[in-house]
Design a protein around this nucleic acid. Sequence first.
DNA 1: AATCGTCACAACCGCCGCCTA
DNA 2: TTAGGCGGCGGTTGTGACGAT
Length: 254
Amino acid sequence: MDVKPRDCVHQSNEDDHMELRRGPWTVEEDFKLIEYIATHGEGRWNSLARCAGLKRTGKSCRLRWLNYLRPDVRRGNITLEEQLLILELHSRWGNRWSKIAQHLPGRTDNEIKNYWRTRVQKHAKQLKCDVNSKQFKDAMRYLWMPRLVERIQAAAATASYTTAEVTATSTTTSTSLFSDDQLGGAQVTSSSYALENSSTTVASSDSFGTRELSGNYYNHNMDFQSLEQNNPWLDNLFNAEDFYFLQQQFNFNM
DNA sequence: AATCGTCACAACCGCCGCCTA
DNA sequence: TTAGGCGGCGGTTGTGACGAT
């Protein structure tokens, strides 16, 4: 469907002076837009809005179509793989939402932007640091992202009934989560986020395996599992031992 | 039950670059 | 060459849902 909508000839004075609608779209408006695009194709949004009889700006129509009505759009339930990809791509490109969205089929720049603001920035806020700070970027790269990789691998392993083996080797096992096309040929592995690339003052990568943390750094009688369960904001990404670790290694002021 | 705070997400706004007449 | 229109992008706001008090 690559047909550009033809300019409509009909333009009454009433149309010329009609009030433009704003705010949430109605079912009727959605239907009009879908119908029109099904027949005439998308593009030339201003004339499309007029011709479809929508009292909306072209921009509004475009946004509604691209972010909501488009048949291939996917909404909600951002997967672990998608989360990891967003973190990875954002670390490369920053707030280039549309560029990031190109690598997540069906996801819109708006949704990724919202995800970043509501989830990622929430974590930064909880850590009392700026989302663009080196501290938080380190935390993402060396804690959050490896954890995501572990969870993805664990989920995959569970699916194939080999959970135990994969969990034990998850920090060194290479997993190709994304196509070469998506990440410029780079493989995403939990070990690729290991500390050796860190510019922090942490001396030894040995001390960084999150699995060792509770033994090496944390001897409290705290039940981490229940703590995680009772803190929804943790979103299953950071847990209590992570916080203690961040505090120790990245000078987080928590 | 009412109120308040937070979260998630849809939608809008302003700016910028490209295209075309 | 240039001015105006348009589409795309990133930032911001508005609002409904939901949980806590």
